[in-house]
Design a protein around this nucleic acid. Structure first.
Length: 282
DNA sequence: CAAGACTCCTGACGGC
DNA sequence: TGCCGTCAGGAGTCTT
């Protein structure tokens, strides 16, 4: 059992999708009366936090959306509020009496508001007229139906190097993080260090199906270890790891073959795998 | 183009 | 008991 990193699972595509879905009925139609930023570095655009606040003042949220791990709030003047939670960001519908780690807040004209908490301060906020300014570098969505198996094969054929870092490269495919990359590779039976240029088409197709199955399962359970967007008490709630087959399962028996799950470093990131089910040998 | 280092942050944890 | 060094992790940037 790994001793570090427990209980701090990072939001990835399924978690962001869940957050946006849960927030939507509470934020759409709301008019932003007051904006506060207490950690100005969280504002990635515009260049000043003041301009960010002024640009949001009096705006109404018309609809929401998601692009990869970015939460989107479309405003009545055509601008878009973009939020990336990174490591530890949270979007909550209540202050919950927690001044610590509150980095920004949007308060509604009719009372209540949306609150951005972020212990690690890696989360970022944008207010843009063109979504591309915040998300233009991103690759395709892994669940995009129009991205066919043939498209995946073609995408992979253009690349080489280690498999896992490629899955984490948001310019290549956007939305996967450390958890679902490990889970997807396990389900596909592929080693994280496998050279991309040695992948056969059927292996890429297997990987596509694994990525989509893992993301869809996480979406169905509303994200892994996700506590929701409502008032959360101080302490962490029981952060479940149900559904995880290898991530943070170091030393536990593989659910498929019983061999102990290993933890290695790949591209500087903790990586979990079953050496028997994910052999590196060609 | 690949890949590693470095940066930004904080708090948990090991060692003593 | 408490100080202190190490470390994790998403993603951008810089270097080799």
């Amino acid at each position: 059992m790994s001793k570090r990193g427990r209980g701090c699972l990072v939001p990835e595509l399924p978690e962001v999708e869940t957050i946006v879905r849960e927030l939507t009925p509470y934020v759409v139609g709301q008019t932003i009366q007051a904006v506060r930023v207490s950690w100005s570095h969280a504002v990635a655009w515009p260049e000043s936090a003041e301009a960010f606040c002024v640009g949001l003042q009096g705006r109404r949220i018309d609809r929401t959306g998601r692009r990869a791990k970015f939460a989107l709030f479309y405003l009545d003047d055509g601008q878009i509020l973009v939020v990336h939670l990174r490591m530890s960001g949270q979007l909550l519908l209540s202050l919950a009496g927690r001044p610590a780690h509150l980095r920004a807040s949007w308060e509604w004209a009719g009372g209540g508001g949306l609150y951005f908490y972020d212990q690690r301060k890696f989360g970022r906020l944008w207010l843009v007229g063109d979504l591309e300014q915040a998300t233009g570098h991103l690759g395709p969505e892994p669940l995009d139906e129009s991205l066919t198996a043939d498209d995946w094969v073609a995408l992979f054929q253009r690349r080489r190097g280690r498999l896992k870092p490629l899955l984490l490269d948001q310019r290549f495919i956007a939305g996967l993080g450390n958890i679902y990359a490990d889970e997807s590779l396990f389900l596909a039976g592929l080693h994280p260090l496998r050279r991309v240029e040695t992948l056969a088409p059927d292996e890429v197709i297997r990987l596509r199906e694994a990525v989509q199955a893992v993301l869809r399962q996480a979406l169905a359970q509303h994200g892994t270890s996700f506590d929701g967007v409502f008032v959360r008490p101080e302490g962490e709630q029981g952060r479940q790891q149900e559904g995880l087959r290898v991530y943070q399962q170091t030393g536990l028996p593989c659910v498929r073959c019983g061999a102990p799950i290993q933890r290695i470093m790949v591209g500087g990131r903790g990586t979990h795998l079953c050496l028997r089910c994910q052999p590196l040998s060609k």
